[in-house]
Amino acid sequence: MNDDVVIEATGVEKSYGRVRVLTGVDLRVEKGTIFSLLGPNGAGKTTMVRILATLIKADAGSVLVAGHDVARNPVRVRRSISLTGQYAAVDELLTGEENLRMMGRLYHLGRKAAWRRTDELLEAFDLVKASRRPVKTYSGGMRRRLDLAVSLMTRPPVLFLDEPTTGLDPRSRQAMWDVVRDLTVTGTTILLTTQYLEEADRLADRIAVIDHGKVVAQGTPDELKRQVASEYVELVLDDGENYDRALRGLGAAAVHTDPQLRSVSVASDGSPGGFRRILEWVEGQGLAVTRVRVKSPSMDDVFLALTDNPDKSTRSDSVSRKVGI
């Protein structure tokens, strides 16, 4: 195995009874990078994280984390990882300080080191004032921050964060991003899941989009955006009749359509020639267009293009249709 690859999963499968949650997931995460798992609710992100963090066993496939096989050597793996689950895992009856100190001891820090690190983390996560109160009196965001602080007790080489910023206000989210970025500077490898596409876009070095238990796309944020559509041109039609004609004329080339706004988007390679061809087509058809806008694809577009809504059965079709124009 390459020394720089810290997490390597191959063909990971997992079923619960008849429900096939993961159907062959491959991931490679390099040392000191931030890797984001993206996908709709129920895609299998949490399941994948739990397998990587040795909490559950995969039915098939192999997983190496920090050079050890999670199935054969979970104890070794646990020495190198830390996990913040999707739901806050702190002791409600203990105070914030007691939670941190306890976890420090359980991470096998010496007493003094655990106490010192507790103070640092309380400071870093803005919990000093609340540190002597039982956690059950904390707000949701405070709890989340404490939960994250606990994971950072030992500066583990590999950190798993399952939706770390869900429920955080913008300032806390920003602070969390700063903490995560700082960690990679010292070589920590981070795998996180998120529902915030902006977060994946700004934070992650690489993203894997999972849907229906499979990785449907993987790459840097820019690669993914380019894969889904290069730039596109949005046409806002004058009235319903023109809108219908534009739709009919474009057929499968219409990427986004919005009947309310009467807007139709057409993929374009971003070159002046491509732009001209679209305008010429509009003129040739005699369409009444009120506005033309050139747009770059966002992570939202990536997400919507690559993942499926549950009632659509031919997923591969929709992907190839949207990607292949």
Partner: peptide, 13 residues
């Protein structure tokens, strides 16, 4: 039923 057991289990204890 609380997440804390997960956390304990991801520790080397």
């Amino acid at each position: 039923v609380n997440g804390i057991v997960e956390r304990f289990r991801s520790l080397p204890i």
